[in-house]
Design a protein around this nucleic acid. Sequence first.
DNA 1: CATGGGATTGACT
DNA 2: GTCAATCCCATGC
Length: 205
Amino acid sequence: MVLPREFYDRPVVAVARDLIGCTLAHGATAGVIVETEAYHESEPACHAFAGVTQRTRVLLGAPGTAYVYRSYGIHALFNAVCEPDGVGAAVLIRALEPTAALTAMRGRRGVDAVGQFCSGPGKLTQALAIGLEHNAGDLTSGPIRIGPRPARWKDVELVSGTRIGITKALELEWRFCAAGARSVSRPWPGRAPSRPGGQARAATG
DNA sequence: CATGGGATTGACT
DNA sequence: GTCAATCCCATGC
């Protein structure tokens, strides 16, 4: 079961929220999405802010397409393109809770702890063997599959915060996470180390 | 054609 | 806490 193209043809922040709790699978490996960030051409942290280039062609393309790019020369980061064709917007998948083929993930990641398999945008692509060759692939018919929330994730509680690792548009609270998720990429911005959840706010919808 | 900058991670102090 | 690895892309000559 795969989410239809219409799911992605909506405001990117709504899609980022709704993707929490959904499943991401490639081959035998799979996990539940527990952390996302939204990016939109209207704000400068988005690659599409500067307009159409060869790099952003996919990002500005049809919703329900994979946008995979290399970060810091090392890591592949996976995004789901959103909003109508011609609008540059995508959801960055930042963390998963691993659910299938954990042995394969362990081998690819080279670490023992399940909590380290997919707790970051570069880690999950390595664990699921998602690479630049998947850029521009169709998420509704290709090898990478995003499915609806399993039953126990139907009413997942969300927290929101500001995005991570960027230098522009720092004020936007476009990062979403499943409350209590263990496999998150980084501590919540501004929270005290000894007080988990300190500045995280419950998402209103 | 040369250069600078990352939507990161892992190792080290 | 700091810092290097490493490469694609956008920009500017």
